[in-house]
């Protein structure tokens, strides 16, 4: 599966959150660990609802967790 255009800081945020495991995060947002792995590797873009859940776990704004490259955003 090819990588999505949305990058994320989940791995870093997990590390700063007492080295939260992927399984812990998966349990808290109600998905499987493989889904967390896929999101972390930017191989799967989560729904907006799931993205908000992830941001809420780390108590940060959505933009801190996910970002979208500017040049990809500007229409040609």
């Amino acid at each position: 599966m090819k990588a999505t255009k949305v990058s994320n800081q989940i791995r870093t945020l997990r590390f700063h959150a007492d080295e939260m495991t992927q399984q812990d995060l998966a349990t808290r947002i109600g998905v499987s660990r493989q889904t967390v792995v896929a999101i972390e590797k930017a191989k799967y873009s989560p729904s907006l609802e799931l993205a908000f859940k992830i941001a809420r776990v780390f108590e940060v704004p959505l933009e801190t967790v996910f970002s979208f490259e500017e040049e990809q955003f500007i229409a040609k």
Binding site: V31, T35, P46, S47, L50
Partner: peptide, 8 residues
């Protein structure tokens, strides 16, 4: 076994 999620 876990329930299906949105990726599934």
């Amino acid at each position: 076994q876990e329930p299906d999620d949105e990726r599934d």
